[in-house]
Computed example of a mutant assay.
Amino acid sequence: MQEEVLTMSYEGLVQEPIDVKHISVSYQSKIALEDISLSIEPGKITGIIGPNGAGKSTFLKSVIGLIKTDSGSVSIAGESIDVIRKQIAYVEQRSAIDLTFPIKVEETVMLGTYPKLGLFRRPKKEDKQKVQESLEKVKMENFSKRQIGNLSGGQLQRVFIARALAQDADIIFLDEPFVGIDMVSEKLIVELLQELRDEGKTIVIVHHDLHKTKEYFDNLIILNKKLIASGPVSTTFTTSTIQKAYGETMGEIVIKGVND
């Protein structure tokens, strides 16, 4: 009975906004993020954009508690985000992965089931079935026995998405998932993320290609160490906010889909 109440509580919490209040982060006395406050809307795809060194990945990691903050808090419906830790999936940058580690595709995806399994419980038949279904969704079922070091960039990113699917997470954070991957993989991943959004999942993506902003995202967070703008793409993705974030060096460059 207690577990049922907790499950219902999770279901309610993940449908609430993630509130970020006064987050600041510094590395060796250099400011990486300064006093960021915003809300991440549930059931939407939110993009995080800004120039190199703007603190995009740092912001993502600070929200989910992967790095220490100097100040601030992250909560959901007044509760620490830690209470829904198992419902959050994180897809790191491909460059952060040790591709020499001898692990197969299916084993990598199986890692997604561990938050719910616990450390000492072996995967059951339904867990293995979930892995298979997740690989099928990203069209990687024929690569299940292959070592991850033998995959292309796009294939590898699809495996990481499958791992998040196997976790059954309600909130998915992705750090530059489209860097260095082929267009087929990018299209497949975007369509899959949009399907997950339509099912009520919350998706947050660090992204670098401004030309795809309007096509990919519902909401936008624009950073350059400080918060430049946050909200629907229709109101945040403007020439003035982009120039404020990226500087006057952008000049009169025309960005596809910019709202003015």
Rank of each mutant, 00 (worst) to 15 (best):
Q129Y: 00
L60K: 03
M110K: 08
F237Y: 14
L119T: 07
I221Y: 10
S62Q: 08
K187M: 00
Q194N: 14
Y114E: 03
K225I: 06
Y90M: 04
V63L: 01
F217N: 01
V105A: 08
S95M: 12
S185Q: 02
T100V: 06
A166S: 12
K56P: 06
T241Q: 11
P51Y: 01
K212Q: 15
E176R: 08
D168E: 15
K130H: 01
R94T: 15
D260T: 14
G149S: 04
T235E: 03
S29C: 03
A96V: 05
M8H: 13
N150L: 09
I228D: 06
T69N: 06
G65I: 12
E186A: 08
A166N: 04
K225T: 07
A32Q: 08
E107N: 11
L174I: 13
K137Q: 15
M250P: 01
L60E: 02
S24D: 06
Y27S: 08
K137Y: 09
K139A: 13
K61C: 03
D260I: 13
L174T: 07
N150E: 11
G65C: 10
G118F: 07
I45F: 03
E215L: 01
V131E: 05
I49C: 02
E136A: 03
L227N: 04
Q147F: 15
T249C: 01
A169E: 00
Y90T: 08
T69S: 11
K256T: 13
I203W: 04
K145I: 01
S240M: 10
K244S: 14
F101D: 11
K244L: 14
T239D: 10
Q157H: 12
L13I: 10
D260N: 15
E186H: 00
K44Y: 00
V105L: 03
V254R: 14
V131P: 07
S152D: 06
A245P: 09
S26G: 09
K86N: 14
V233L: 10
D127L: 10
I31F: 04
R163S: 05
S152K: 07
E106I: 00
I171E: 07
T58H: 00
D170V: 07
A32V: 11
I189S: 02
Q155P: 08
M250Y: 10
